[in-house]
Every structure is written in structure tokens, then in C-alpha cells.
Amino acid sequence: MDEFDWANQEAKGWLDVTVAWDGGRRVVEVYDPVRLAQSVGSETARLGRFTARNLLVVPSVTRENIESAVSTIAQEGFFDHE
């Protein structure tokens, strides 16, 4: 993605990211706290529940924040189990 695309995603506050490594790949839902609260409220009002698999919340949806967080959670073993 270029700078414009990243600025767009940061403004939206969420992005699905595919993380790939030697052992496989996984889609991670990345949100900023404000957008997550909006999504939780909306889904709860509409469906009576909110669920998210592989949720990652970062201060803002920027390339730097996502790369840093994914690196950290990978070292913590987040991707070692389904």
C-alpha cells in the first residue's frame, strides 16, 4: 500500500492483515480503540453480540504500529496456536 492507502486505513480505524510465516498464515483484524468501540456497539445493538477472532488493537492503524505489534505478539507465541 502507498502512503495514501495507509492514511485512508488510519482514518477508517480498522484493517484486515494477513500475517504469513514459515508455519502458515493468519488473517488478523486490526482496530484502533475508537473504531473497535464503535464496532462493538453497532454489532451488539444489531446482533446482540460481538465476536472477533485474531483481534489486534493498536493506538492507530498505521503500518509502523501494525508491524511493531505483530512482531511483538509473534515473539510472545500468538501465532503458535490456532
Rank of each mutant, 00 (worst) to 15 (best):
M1E: 13
D2C: 14
E3Y: 04
E3W: 04
E3K: 13
D5A: 15
A7Q: 14
A7E: 14
N8T: 13
Q9C: 06
Q9K: 09
Q9T: 01
E10C: 13
E10K: 14
E10A: 15
A11I: 03
A11T: 07
A11W: 05
K12M: 14
K12C: 10
K12Y: 10
W14C: 10
W14L: 09
W14E: 12
L15M: 10
L15Y: 02
L15H: 07
L15W: 06
D16F: 09
D16C: 06
T18C: 09
T18D: 04
V19G: 03
A20W: 00
A20F: 00
A20D: 03
W21E: 02
D22L: 09
D22P: 03
D22H: 07
G23L: 09
G23H: 10
V27A: 00
V27L: 01
V27Y: 00
V28K: 04
E29T: 09
E29Q: 14
Y31R: 04
Y31L: 05
Y31S: 04
Y31M: 05
D32T: 05
D32L: 06
P33Q: 05
P33A: 04
P33S: 04
R35V: 01
L36Q: 04
L36I: 02
A37D: 08
Q38P: 00
S39V: 07
S39P: 00
G41A: 03
S42T: 07
T44A: 06
T44I: 05
A45N: 00
A45L: 06
L47N: 11
L47P: 02
G48Y: 05
G48T: 02
R49C: 05
R49F: 04
R49A: 08
R49P: 00
R49Q: 08
F50L: 01
F50H: 02
T51Y: 05
T51P: 03
T51R: 10
T51Q: 11
A52I: 01
A52D: 02
A52W: 01
R53M: 02
R53A: 03
L55M: 07
L55C: 02
L56G: 01
L56T: 01
L56C: 03
V57W: 04
V57G: 02
V57S: 04
V58D: 09
V58L: 10
V58R: 05
V58P: 07
P59N: 11
S60I: 03
S60K: 13
S60F: 03
S60T: 14
V61A: 12
T62N: 11
R63I: 06
R63K: 13
E64H: 12
E64R: 14
E64I: 08
I66D: 11
I66A: 13
E67H: 13
E67Q: 14
S68I: 11
A69E: 15
A69F: 07
V70T: 10
V70E: 08
V70M: 13
V70C: 11
S71M: 12
T72C: 10
T72Y: 11
I73F: 01
I73D: 02
I73C: 04
A74Y: 11
A74R: 13
A74I: 07
A74Q: 11
Q75H: 12
Q75R: 13
Q75S: 15
Q75D: 15
E76D: 15
G77H: 06
G77E: 11
F79P: 10
D80G: 15
D80P: 14
D80E: 15
H81G: 14
H81E: 14
E82Y: 13
E82L: 14
E82Q: 12
